[in-house]
Structures are given as structure tokens and as C-alpha cells.
């Protein structure tokens, strides 16, 4: 039991740090209505850049977070240009960037697929020394603070004129073009912002787990979607935008808790991706199946009532 509790604590902090990535996925998937597969690559990019900067260039770990975020923004821009300027379908544009990032990440880390951060300071080790708390506690608090800041900034941003135009782009491209908005720009901004957050999340997870890895982002998009749908199910029919953003992070935490529990119960870590996919598929299938069932069984050959 104790080991489950301990692993749950780690899962919560992990969930919050990955939650920043989920917010990025939320921007593209929910607001822009684009399935952006850059995420797997830009998450690993954030992690690899962060590890390389800290280990090879002895960069301040906070600054490394910023650099990782900017790298994510750049990755988003590449997908954005492929999609908006050259009109490649968004899914394919994302896949192209994602695949190329795998090689780029290897180059960044000097050909190594994994780079440990054991002997260097991270934001978390620094805070552990200062406060004397355990790292899992520190990363949880720090993660919640960052998530709260990001949610507040996104809430503000999507209420501004540009933010509204981005939301409208996801809603109705034809309409917002007729109202004088260049949808190439709004899509670019959305993709860059989203992948910036994904890069930041990758860097945070890198510092928390003390290694950068080119495979760290594999399946990130599925985790993102799983967290979003889990959050939606948990929070029910909420309308406030702030609550929706929060539910994305909560969904991420719950996802990592479920994951910790099934791992404790003896499931192989290698089966986790299968489980993630099943969770997403179920969450997407169940409402459709329920609606079909409802329609089928509400049919009355005798007619209907008023």
C-alpha cells in the first residue's frame, strides 16, 4: 500500500508537469481544430535541448527552460509554414516535423539517444537545497505554480482580439477570413504557442526525471488527448474557459495516477502505450456508441408522443 501511495505522489507531480504539454495539445486540438502531431517531436526536443544546455553548456536550468520553450516555438513554426504557406494537410505537416525532429534531437545530443543529468543542478535540486523538502514535493508545487501561470496567461490571451481571432479560426475559417483575418497568421500563432508549451513541458519533465531522451516524446500526443478527454469526462459539462483549461491539467494528473496504479498492479511498462490508446479510443467511441444505442431504442413503430 505504502509503495502505491509513494508512486501516486510521483504520478501527481509528473501529471502536472506533463499537464503543460496537454495545454499545448488543447490549443491545437480543441481551439484551432487541428490535429498537430508535431507534439511527439517537440516534447522530445524540449527535453533534449534542456539536457544538452545544462550538461554541455552549463546553462542555468531556468534559462534552459526558456531555450527549450523557444525551440518548441520554432518546431511549431515549421509545421505552421508547411501547413499554411504550402497547404500541406496539418496532420501530415506535423508528422514531417515530428520525424525530422527525431534526427535533429539526436544531433543536438551529439549522437547519444539519452543524456543523464545526475551530476548537475536542476531547478528542482536547487529548490530542494533551499527548502529542504523532498524533490517530488518540490516538483509538484513548482509544477502547479507554472500550470497556474500558463492557464492564467492562456485565459487572458484567448480573450484578446488576436486570441478571439484564433478561436474563430478554429470555429469557422470562411467567416473569419470574410472579417479580415489572415488565417495563416492565426494558425501560425496557435501552432507556435502550442509547441512552445510542449517544449517547456519536455524540459520540465527532463529536469524532473534527470535525463533527456530522444524517445521521451513518443506517444505524447496520445497522452495529451487521453488527458483532455479524461478531464472532460471528470469535469462534466463545464462552460467556463478557465475551467476547461484546468480540466486539461487535471486530466493529465488523473491519467498519470491511473498509469501508476496499473503499473503497481503489475502491468508491464511496455503495455502502457496500448493502455493510453485504449483509453483515448474508448473515450471517443463511448459517446458515439451511446448515441447510436439511444436512437435505436427510442424508435417506436406505433408513432411517438408529443
Amino acid at each position: 500500500m505504502a509503495s502505491i501511495l509513494l508512486s501516486l505522489q510521483g504520478a501527481v507531480s509528473q501529471g502536472v508537469l506533463w499537464g503543460i504539454m496537454v495545454l499545448g495539445v488543447y490549443i491545437t486540438y480543441k481551439i484551432l481544430n487541428i490535429s498537430d502531431l508535431t507534439v511527439d517531436g517537440s516534447f522530445a526536443l524540449g527535453s533534449c535541448i534542456c539536457a544538452t544546455m545544462i550538461v554541455n553548456y552549463e546553462m542555468n536550468p531556468f534559462l534552459a527552460l526558456v531555450v527549450a520553450m523557444l525551440a518548441g516555438v520554432l518546431a511549431g513554426a515549421v509545421t505552421g509554414i508547411l501547413h499554411t504557406v504550402f497547404e500541406i494537410p496539418a496532420i501530415l505537416a506535423g508528422i514531417l516535423t515530428q520525424i525530422s525532429l527525431w534526427s535533429i534531437n539526436l544531433r543536438i545530443m551529439g549522437g547519444k539517444s539519452n543524456m543523464p543529468l545526475l551530476k548537475v543542478d536542476t531547478i528542482f535540486t536547487g529548490l530542494v537545497e533551499k527548502t529542504g523538502m523532498k524533490q517530488s514535493m518540490i516538483s509538484l508545487i513548482f509544477g502547479i505554480v507554472i500550470a497556474a501561470i500558463v492557464i492564467s496567461v492562456l485565459y487572458w490571451f484567448f480573450g484578446t482580439e488576436i486570441g478571439s481571432a484564433i478561436r474563430a479560426t478554429g470555429n469557422n475559417e470562411k467567416m473569419i477570413r470574410a472579417l479580415g483575418v489572415d488565417i495563416k497568421k492565426t494558425k501560425m500563432i496557435g501552432l507556435m504557442l502550442a509547441n512552445g508549451l510542449v517544449g517547456l513541458s519536455g524540459a520540465l519533465v527532463c529536469q524532473n526525471s534527470k535525463y533527456g531522451d530522444i524517445n521521451m516524446g513518443t506517444g505524447a500526443i496520445v497522452i495529451g488527448l487521453a488527458a483532455i478527454v479524461t478531464g472532460e469526462v471528470l469535469m462534466g459539462k463545464i462552460v467556463s474557459f478557465k475551467a476547461k483549461l484546468t480540466s486539461a491539467v487535471v486530466g493529465s494528473v488523473v491519467y498519470f495516477m491511473i498509469r501508476a496504479i496499473v503499473l503497481q498492479l503489475g502491468m508491464s511498462a511496455n503495455d502502457m502505450k496500448l493502455l493510453s490508446a485504449v483509453i483515448v479510443a474508448l473515450a471517443l467511441c463511448v459517446p458515439v456508441a451511446m448515441e447510436k444505442y439511444r436512437i435505436k431504442h427510442s424508435y417506436n413503430p406505433e408513432g411517438g408522443d408529443e
Binding site: R167, A168, G170, N171, N172, K174, M175, I176, A178
Partner: peptide, 8 residues
């Protein structure tokens, strides 16, 4: 459906 953003 074309002239307005349904989700806003």
C-alpha cells in the same frame, strides 16, 4: 452556418 462562429 458560414457567417458566424458557432462555438462563440
Amino acid at each position: 452556418m458560414f457567417g458566424t462562429a458557432a462555438g462563440m
